[in-house]
Write a protein that binds this DNA or RNA. Structure first.
Lengths: 151, 151
DNA sequence: CCGCTCTTGAGGGTCGTGCGCAATAGCAGC
DNA sequence: GCTGCTATTGCGCACGACCCTCAAGAGCGG
């Protein structure tokens, strides 16, 4: 059951790094994990545990994602509804996500920093977008909502 | 529904006002609803449906909260984990909420406006904090997290 | 090749939330 | 105050997301 090695440029090295990190922790490099990480790093957008499980066991996927998250290799975000979305921890940072369609884009660090500072001085709260995104509507969904009068 | 500039004491600032609003809609003032609204308005922080149900039926609580939300008397937010939190709609609409303890505070409208503008111009997304709060940590939880090496 | 132990996969459980339905309780009219 | 119409209740169940348990299987060091 060997996965045909696609020529994934940056992703492959990240996945490889993830493999190494796993091994470094005395954890095993199982087929399921390999597959999961491949899928994860190859994806260009956060995936659900179910998507990542593919034909495999969803429970195992959750388990592995938990492990990987513990190692800091993976992170997940929750939009208000629907399953959590998992992404490689490396590249994506703080993001805005569309409540409707789940689309999300990264926020410039300076923007986040400014926001954090503003909210901190105004409320004392420490904004944290690493687990939960900034909620909003993507341009398209916003257009739809506006057109159909939806809030 | 044009609201001039009033900082007026919002509509149903009390359970009694909410009762009236219900009756005005031809809806019945059941004991369950009375209790729910009392609890809701008496609370100093958002409550879960279960808390609001008390000894009563949780399903009914959800149903009623839905109704009340439809009337604009109640609103709810979701933190990533745990049940949704319900609060009287009179509260400020945009808020930061603590991911750990659920505490939430209102954000100044101009702050939200600034944030919205910044994110819009940077990403095209329309930030919307009316249903989902801006995630973060309250001062206390942040202190704890920092102390114990949390994210 | 062996064996120890990490992992898997299936099954089932929990939690949050919504639905259907029969019994009940508001409220209006008499 | 009693009656009847129907909104509402409360229960049981359904469903999705997620996690736990346990026996069987797979990594990896020796």
């Amino acid at each position: 059951m060997t996965v045909p090695h696609l020529t994934a440029p940056v992703e492959a090295s990240s996945a490889a790094a993830a493999f190494a990190a796993l091994r470094a922790q005395g954890l095993r490099l199982s087929t399921a994990r390999r597959l999961l990480l491949h899928t994860l790093f190859a994806a260009d957008r956060p995936l659900t545990a179910e998507e990542l499980a593919g034909e495999g066991d969803v429970a195992s996927a959750y388990r592995n994602l938990e492990v990987l998250e513990g190692l800091g290799l993976v992170r997940h975000v929750h939009l208000g509804h629907g399953p959590g979305l998992y992404a490689p921890a490396g590249d994506r940072h703080e993001l805005v996500a569309c409540e409707r369609c789940g689309a999300s884009v990264a926020l410039a660090p300076r923007l986040v920093e400014a926001l954090r500072a503003a909210v901190r001085s105004a409320t004392g709260f420490e904004v944290r977008l690493s687990h939960l995104p900034l909620p909003g509507l993507c341009p398209r969904c916003h257009a739809n909502a506006t057109r159909s009068g939806g809030d």
